[in-house]
Computed example of a mutant assay.
Amino acid sequence: MLLSFLFRTVLRDAAKGNICQHVKCFHSGSQLLSADKALLMKLRKSTGYTFINCKKALEKFDNDIVQAETWLHEQAQKEGWSKANKLEGRRAKEGLIGLFVGDKAAVMVEVNCETDFVARNEKFQQLVKDVTFATLAHHRNKTQRQEGYVKSFLAGDELSKLSTGEGTSLADQVALTIGRLGENMSVKRAVAVGVPADWHFGSYVHGGVGGQNEVAMGRYGALVVFQGGKEGEQDMLGRKLGQHIVGEAPLSLGNMDDLPCGESETRLLPQTFLSDPSRTVAQFLAGKQARVLDFVRFQCGEAAGEETK
């Protein structure tokens, strides 16, 4: 009898046109669900947070994606600070050196994490970029009225107070990344250099990751300042000098007329040149009509104060 009753109800609704109305309602519901799904996918793509958290945020703010994204960042940052406090003290000796060379300004930074696996994560690499450009902005703001050669080192506590382009502090960005990746991290150090118009930068990063982009990243980095060099060869000259500094780890510059003291030579200019073992660095530079004025070398994980400068 129940089946008979249902059948009669369907026939009656069909005669009144209600089935079309039901189908129409169902179809509209499907469109709404598709719209919700598209919004969810968009939020997931723009933030990188899990589907569950993105869905929760959209439900909380009645599908307002702007408020949902803001809330997600706030929650991730809170979680990151909580994790950062719990992970504090855990050894963070891995990470990356980030190096950016502009027209007359260059920056090199070190950001640490616990494992090489996380160092290769694009979210960690984004943090390295944030630190690099925050340092560059700080350098340009500080030296905009200064001329000549300027070099400054920043320790981790100074770097943490700097602001990113989005207005948040680097300390907050570190906490946010800790919350996302679950490892202890720290902003260790940075050097920023400005040069006069007729000086040049050379640079090299070894063990590069992250593909080709404006911030080179790896486990070792060298920044060298030089004058002269033949026109059209200065980029190659700077790269070769950077490779030598990374590979041979000189501790000081030395003088052009210094004599080598053997295999343990720690002065740059008397060292045997890596790209041409028949000559010293000084002899190579003389042949290129160039002169090295300064350099800095960073090795990821080395003790504070061990950078060569």
Rank of each mutant, 00 (worst) to 15 (best):
G208S: 11
K129I: 12
K151D: 11
R267N: 11
N85C: 06
T115F: 05
D257Q: 10
V296R: 02
V107C: 09
Q67T: 13
G247D: 04
D116I: 07
M236P: 00
V191P: 13
A222K: 06
H138S: 15
G238C: 00
E248K: 15
L43V: 06
G208Y: 01
E214F: 00
V174H: 01
C20M: 04
D198G: 09
P196T: 14
F7I: 15
P277V: 12
A190C: 13
D130V: 05
W81V: 01
V118E: 03
D157L: 08
K151I: 12
A68R: 12
G218V: 02
G262P: 05
F201D: 07
Q271E: 06
F51K: 04
C300R: 00
A175E: 08
V215A: 07
D103F: 03
D198M: 03
E231Y: 01
S34G: 08
K60L: 02
I97T: 07
D198A: 12
D258N: 09
V193D: 00
S160D: 13
W81G: 05
S82D: 01
G305Y: 02
F284Y: 15
F100I: 10
T115W: 10
G102V: 15
V109M: 09
E110P: 06
G89Q: 08
D157Q: 02
H138F: 15
A137E: 14
N85H: 00
S152M: 07
Q243F: 04
T272Y: 02
V215C: 01
K86C: 00
V215E: 08
G194F: 09
A35L: 11
E94I: 08
V195I: 15
F298W: 02
S203C: 14
R91I: 15
V107I: 15
G247E: 01
G156D: 12
R120Q: 14
M108A: 10
Q227A: 07
D198W: 05
Q212P: 02
K151L: 13
E158K: 14
G156Q: 05
K129S: 14
K309P: 07
A119I: 12
T132E: 04
D157W: 01
C54V: 05
R145C: 05
E183W: 11
L154V: 09
A92T: 09
L274P: 03
Q77W: 05
V195K: 06
G207L: 11
L2Y: 08
G287V: 09
K86D: 06
V118H: 05
T70F: 01
E88M: 06
L58T: 08
E59Q: 13
D198V: 01
Y49W: 00
L40Q: 08
K151E: 10
G232W: 13
W199M: 10
A290W: 07
R239D: 05
A76V: 00
A105K: 11
F51G: 10
L268R: 08
C113S: 04
S278H: 02
I178S: 04
E307A: 13
